[in-house]
Design a protein around this nucleic acid. Structure first.
Lengths: 197, 197
DNA sequence: TCAATCCTTGCATAGTGTGCAAACTTTGCA
DNA sequence: TGCAAAGTTTGCACACTATGCAAGGATTGA
């Protein structure tokens, strides 16, 4: 985990650009600031800005954390009922996200109603979903089932973040519990069982 | 349903621009054509292009059909188990999409791996999902459950289209059936029932 | 027929994003 | 230590994107 000087600089610059982007954007709105202003605030040239990110939106989003290898392994090799292993997996993932909850909150504020940004986020979500689908192949009978479960996981994550953004006194974990509850009830309904609990 | 001359022209121009965009894009890739070329091919000025669509990607996508009011009403007021009403709803929606399957196929080809386009599509999907969530409020116990079900519906649609794009000899309806099957099994798993069928 | 309304277009302009080449820094090997 | 290879930053040029504005044309309904 020891980074070379070059790698460390790269991380620092990337972080400086993201921070500058978010701060300026919270002040003025992402639409009303230019890459030039961001670059100046981050202490680099405009050209260098574009060496790190292809646009403002990507700079604001930065590089979201993917799933941890250990968590994926635990999910793949788990022996408890799938629902339980999944819930544990999601809890872990939420903990990871909670570590950067200040950035998460800014990103949410800044990106609402920005199409380009939604596309970028959707790209990351797609990667996560595919990643998870592969994991789940070890636990379910075929790819369609794995994809359906994986979709629900990424959706739950997105909806939990959304809920957390709108209800300030709720923690990410608590928001997840509420959303998860809804998913379970919905699954009973879709499964067509008559007992809903 | 009788349109004035102005309204008819508007539709025609919009359609001409979308068609020109898709044809040029299939030939050369959306990234390699300019709004200027598209406008010329559609027989309008560049400025007029931007009066209709804010960018190439939006022009390629056009205006996707939302859900039909009758179908939504049927879902809201249905009395069969929710799963069955939902499946019927999806079947209807797929029929609607199938009517424009030539455009659907082109759109899929052109947009793959275009972030801006994904954002726009995601915007439309969000509208559909919210629309559906409202409908489902009449059928389920709370908003979280409605949102979970609605997410599954839009996901299933997206995955069905994806499957159909990759397996040329399958109809949209058949693709939906395969994906739906996967969702039902997944729901049993998430619901935690021991019998999976 | 005429005024209100809407549409198209050209022009000007601010901003985005990339290729290229020159200068500079870090790296790691002799 | 010294030096070549690799990676970074920057300026510059350039093509493309997207919007505001104003002039002129077409459509509408009275």
């Amino acid at each position: 985990m020891t980074l070379s000087l070059r790698q460390k600089r790269r991380q620092e610059t990337a972080h400086a650009i993201q921070t500058a982007t978010l701060e300026l954007a919270i002040e003025n709105g992402l639409e009303n600031i230019t890459t030039e202003e961001i670059a100046a605030a981050a202490g680099v040239s405009t050209r260098t800005f574009f060496n790190y990110f292809t646009n403002k939106e990507a700079a604001a989003i930065g590089t979201p954390p993917g799933f941890h290898e250990e968590d994926k392994a635990a999910l793949r090799d788990g022996t408890a009922p799938l629902t339980e292993d999944l819930k544990r997996f999601l809890d872990k993932h939420m903990e990871t996200l909670a570590k950067k909850d200040n950035i998460l909150r800014m990103v949410g504020k800044v990106l609402r109603s920005n199409e380009k940004a939604r596309g970028i986020l959707d790209g990351f979500l797609t990667i996560e979903r595919d990643d998870l689908t592969e994991c789940l192949m070890a636990r379910v009978e075929n790819r369609q089932v794995a994809a359906a479960v994986a979709s629900n996981v990424t959706n739950v994550t997105a909806r939990a973040i959304h809920l957390w953004e709108h209800e300030p006194d709720r923690s990410l974990g608590e928001a997840l519990d509420t959303i998860w509850e809804g998913l379970i009830v919905a699954s009973h309904l879709l499964a067509g069982s008559s007992d809903q609990r």
